[in-house]
Amino acid sequence: MGSVRTNRYSIVSSEEDGMKLATMAVANGFGNGKSKVHTRQQCRSRFVKKDGHCNVQFINVGEKGQRYLADIFTTCVDIRWRWMLVIFCLAFVLSWLFFGCVFWLIALLHGDLDTDYKDDDDKSKVSKACVSEVNSFTAAFLFSIETQTTIGYGFRCVTDECPIAVFMVVFQSIVGCIIDAFIIGAVMAKMAKPKKRNETLVFSHNAVIAMRDGKLCLMWRVGNLRKSHLVEAHVRAQLLKSRITSEGEYIPLDQIDINVGFDSGIDRIFLVSPITIVHEIDEDSPLYDLSKQDIDNADFEIVVILEGMVEATAMTTQCRSSYLANEILWGHRYEPVLFEEKHYYKVDYSRFHKTYEVPNTPLCSARDLAEKKYILSNANSFCYENEVALTSKEEEEDSENGVPESTSTDSPPGIDLHNQASVPLEPRPLRRESEIGSRR
């Protein structure tokens, strides 16, 4: 089982795998120059863009038009607004034209077009017409509009002379109601789609790998820009990579689940303020055997998904993003964004995407760390350097704002901070800030 798991979770494809794949392509008759073999020097295209759209195009789909027309309502909801407006206008105009032609044909076959009612006051002739005051196609078209929109100006009306005319008036009224219901329903469904809710759900630009509770963890940050909550919010993550099976089958995008606390339930989050999602790199993680150097040379993509129900409509929305291997910062942490004021908490989104480097973060893999092949620094050293990194950030910001350097908390000259780390230190809580992250 261990060997199978290692093969499945191998992220960085070796040169031997690339040569094996190329040999397979030639042997199977696919070596026509169009096949692409992804190596370390040639990274694959992003499968999920940063804005959440999937970078996929469908080609050679059989009976595409028929399949889309069979699900016309979903098609109308998914198309762009400009095409929705075109369909909206065409549906009414074509129905008016169709029934206008029908009423014109009825008048033509009944002989109503030969009668001039402007110079004739004989009401008996008017009563013999199928539709009064309809003696041309324009008049028939206007009567069709008046019937379907129930305008009723009063000059044109159907008589009991022709039952077919009466039937067409009733039929057009029913068709008009159906068109109204369909168009209004599609427009309302399109307006109520929770897709735009994703514009106020954000992911951090970069993911980070750092120590948390004595273990290497992959972390990324999510935030909600609205005050309205995302009900039943939960997160998922998958690692996408290519691999070759033991039988020699090439899988271009193998999807591997990344555990973010599904078993323990901590994948469900209360997204009021930005939260750091934590994936513990343990023996079940696809990143277990990867060191910093392996991450730098790897070719994979981590897709992160945030799902929840919109509070206003109770409709489920899904926000997506992805991180390539070069977008994962090893040995970094996110800057705090949640600050405790006197009577409330304040979230500073200008710090949302910012990170700071944490010294002495192990550069080895989580496996080597678990097997004690890498000796961690003293816990006080880690905490102290973590505090120094934050303090230096604040000093830089104070210097930019014009604060005198004498007010900063610099260490005395001639003292090495790293050498001082081995000395037991008193706890130094942050002056006014605390970061709330997901705790395992």
Rank of each mutant, 00 (worst) to 15 (best):
G2M: 03
G2A: 11
R5W: 03
N7K: 14
R8K: 05
R8L: 04
S10T: 07
D17N: 04
D17L: 04
G18H: 07
G18Q: 07
M19G: 10
T23W: 07
T23A: 10
A25T: 14
N28M: 05
G33C: 11
K34Y: 05
K34G: 14
S35E: 15
H38C: 08
H38D: 12
Q41N: 11
R44E: 14
R44G: 14
R44K: 09
R46N: 01
F47L: 14
H53W: 06
N55Y: 02
N55Q: 13
E63D: 07
K64E: 04
K64W: 04
G65P: 15
Y68T: 10
A70D: 07
A70M: 07
I72T: 15
C76T: 11
C76W: 10
C76I: 15
R80F: 07
R80D: 15
R80Y: 02
W81S: 02
W83P: 06
M84N: 05
M84C: 05
F88W: 07
L90S: 10
A91N: 14
V93C: 11
L94R: 01
L94K: 02
S95K: 02
L97P: 00
G100R: 00
F103K: 00
F103C: 03
W104Y: 15
A107F: 00
G111K: 03
L113P: 02
D116H: 12
D120V: 00
D120N: 01
D121N: 11
D122C: 00
D122P: 00
D122W: 01
A129N: 07
S132I: 10
S136M: 00
L142Q: 05
F143P: 00
I145A: 09
Q148T: 02
Q148G: 05
Q148S: 07
I151N: 05
G152K: 04
G152H: 05
G154S: 04
R156N: 02
C157T: 10
T159I: 02
T159Y: 03
E161R: 05
E161H: 05
C162Y: 02
I164H: 13
A165K: 02
F167M: 10
M168V: 04
V170Y: 03
F171I: 07
Q172R: 08
Q172N: 00
C177V: 08
I179T: 10
I179Q: 12
A181I: 15
F182G: 03
F182M: 04
I184R: 01
A186V: 10
V187D: 00
M188S: 15
M188G: 15
M191C: 10
M191R: 10
M191P: 12
A192H: 06
R197M: 11
V202G: 06
V202L: 09
V208P: 00
K215Q: 12
C217M: 09
G223V: 10
G223S: 12
N224D: 11
N224E: 10
R226F: 05
H229M: 11
E232Y: 12
E232L: 12
A233C: 08
Q238Y: 06
L239I: 14
L240F: 07
K241S: 09
R243Q: 13
Q255L: 11
I258Y: 01
D263M: 09
S264M: 11
G265C: 04
I275A: 10
T276S: 11
H279R: 00
E280S: 09
E280L: 11
D282Y: 02
E283T: 10
S285Q: 01
S285D: 01
L287D: 00
L290Y: 10
I295Y: 03
N297L: 09
E301K: 00
E301H: 00
E301D: 01
L306Q: 00
L306I: 09
G308A: 10
V310L: 08
E311C: 10
M315C: 13
M315T: 11
T316L: 15
C319T: 13
C319E: 11
R320C: 07
S321E: 04
S322A: 03
I328F: 01
L329I: 10
H332E: 04
H332G: 01
R333P: 00
R333W: 13
E335C: 05
V337T: 11
V337G: 01
L338C: 14
E340M: 10
E341M: 05
Y344P: 09
Y344R: 15
Y344T: 10
Y345Q: 13
Y345D: 01
D348V: 01
F352C: 00
H353V: 00
T355E: 01
Y356F: 14
E357M: 07
E357I: 06
E357R: 04
T361I: 03
S365I: 00
D368I: 09
K373L: 10
Y374T: 14
Y374M: 11
L376Q: 14
N380Y: 04
F382G: 06
E385P: 00
E385A: 07
N386S: 15
N386V: 07
V388K: 08
A389C: 10
A389F: 10
L390Q: 15
L390S: 15
K393T: 14
E395N: 11
S399C: 11
N401E: 12
V403Q: 13
V403K: 06
P404Y: 11
S406A: 12
S408F: 08
P412A: 14
I415P: 14
D416R: 09
N419K: 08
L425H: 06
P427S: 12
R428K: 13
P429V: 13
L430A: 11
R431S: 15
R431T: 13
R432D: 14
R432W: 06
R432N: 15
I436L: 14
